[in-house]
C-alpha cells in the first residue's frame, strides 16, 4: 500500500491498512524508544496514541504519513521523558531538532482533551450515551423518543441537558481538566 493509502485506510477503518501500518512502522518506533530509556510496552502505547491522534485530529497531511507517524511518536516520547525528567539520561536529548512543534502540540492537546471526554462519557448511563449519539447521528426526535422510551421531546431534551451537566461535572473534577483547558 502507498503512503497515502495507509493514511486513508487508517481514517476509514480499513483493518488491512492498520495492520500494515503496525507491521511497517511499529518496529521503527519500538527500536527508537527502547534505545531511549523506554520499553516495548511504552513504544506500543506511544505508537497507538500517535495513530489515534492522527485518526481523530489530523484531517490533512502535508508530508508523508510514515514520516508524520515516526516524527510524532519520537516527539511525543521526548515530551514524555521531559515530563519524567529523565531526558538527560537519554540520547533523545541530543536530538534538538526533534520536539513537538506548535501544530503537533495542539493536536496532542486536542487528542488528550478527546481522551478526557471519552473517559467520562463512558461513565455515563447507556441511555445518556445513546441519546447523545442518536441525536448527533441525525436520527429524528420521534425515533429517538420511541427507541429510548421518552414521553415527550421536552423530557428527552431535559434528560440530555442533565446528562451533559453530569458529564461536565465529572470532566471538571479531573486533575487534567485545568491543565488542558487553562
Amino acid at each position: 500500500m502507498s503512503d497515502l493509502e495507509l493514511y486513508k485506510g487508517l481514517k476509514n477503518g480499513d483493518r488491512n491498512a492498520v495492520l500494515e501500518i503496525y507491521s511497517r512502522l511499529l518496529p521503527r518506533v519500538k527500536s527508537w524508544v527502547t534505545a531511549n530509556n523506554g520499553t516495548e510496552a511504552d513504544a506500543h502505547d506511544l505508537f497507538q496514541e500517535t495513530l489515534e491522534t492522527i485518526l481523530l485530529k489530523v484531517d490533512v497531511i502535508h508530508s508523508s504519513f510514515e514520516g508524520l507517524v515516526i516524527k510524532m511518536s519520537k516527539n511525543k516520547w521526548i515530551d514524555t521523558l521531559r515530563k519524567q525528567k529523565t531526558i538527560d539520561k537519554t540520547k533523545a536529548y541530543l536530538e534538538k531538532s526533534e520536539s513537538l512543534n506548535e501544530d503537533e502540540h495542539l493536536k496532542m492537546t486536542e487528542y488528550h482533551k478527546y481522551k478526557l471526554m471519552e473517559k467520562y462519557f463512558s461513565k455515563l448511563s447507556n441511555t445518556c450515551q445513546q441519546l447523545m449519539v442518536l441525536l448527533k447521528e441525525g436520527v429524528s426526535v420521534q425515533e429517538v423518543m420511541k427507541k429510548l422510551n421518552f414521553s415527550s421531546a421536552n423530557t428527552m431534551y431535559r434528560r440530555k441537558a442533565a446528562c451533559i451537566e453530569r458529564w461536565g461535572q465529572l470532566v471538571k473534577k479531573d486533575v487534567r481538566y485545568k491543565e488542558l483547558y487553562s
Binding site: 487508517l10 480499513d14 489515534e52 485518526l55 481523530l56 471526554m117 471519552e118 462519557f121 449519539v133 448527533k136
Partner: peptide, 29 residues
C-alpha cells in the same frame, strides 16, 4: 466545555468505527 462535549460526540459518531478497528488491532498487537 459544552461545545467541546458536543464536538466529542460528533467526532465519536464520525470516527467510532475506524477507532474501533484501530483499537482492535492495537489490542492484538
Amino acid at each position: 466545555l459544552y461545545k467541546e462535549m458536543e464536538g466529542f460526540v460528533e467526532e465519536r459518531v464520525k470516527k467510532m468505527d475506524a477507532l474501533e478497528v484501530l483499537r482492535g488491532v492495537s489490542s492484538e498487537q
